[in-house]
Design a protein around this nucleic acid. Sequence first.
DNA 1: CGTGTGACTCGGT
DNA 2: GACCGAGCCACAC
Length: 106
Amino acid sequence: MAQEDIYHISAFAFKVYDLVIRIPKGKVSSYGDIARALGEPGAARAVGRALNKNPFSPQVPCHRVVKSNGLVGGFFDGYNKKLRLLKQEGVKIKQNRVARECFYGF
DNA sequence: CGTGTGACTCGGT
DNA sequence: GACCGAGCCACAC
């Protein structure tokens, strides 16, 4: 895709964004799940790194991506607010943790 | 071009 | 359940 070149991101990372924005409202996903959905079960780290770069900052709802165990990663401070937002969207939060039933299966 | 690090994950202890 | 080590991909040095 041409957009990758524009933003200097790998096709891999681009797929990550594409997948993340596809996560339905009220659902979340984990780095590993996204990596698996991309056909690279071991690329969870790359997925996280890609989101960290995140040239689409507000466009890509990175707050919908959490750890596999449901725990939220140690992101920047503002993430706590996003948890609140997720809860508002219908995602069940258990003390900084996302309910397993709210995970979106690709 | 080799090494180390990271918003990760898994399996074994 | 917690800790530890190995494996995975992308990137900075």
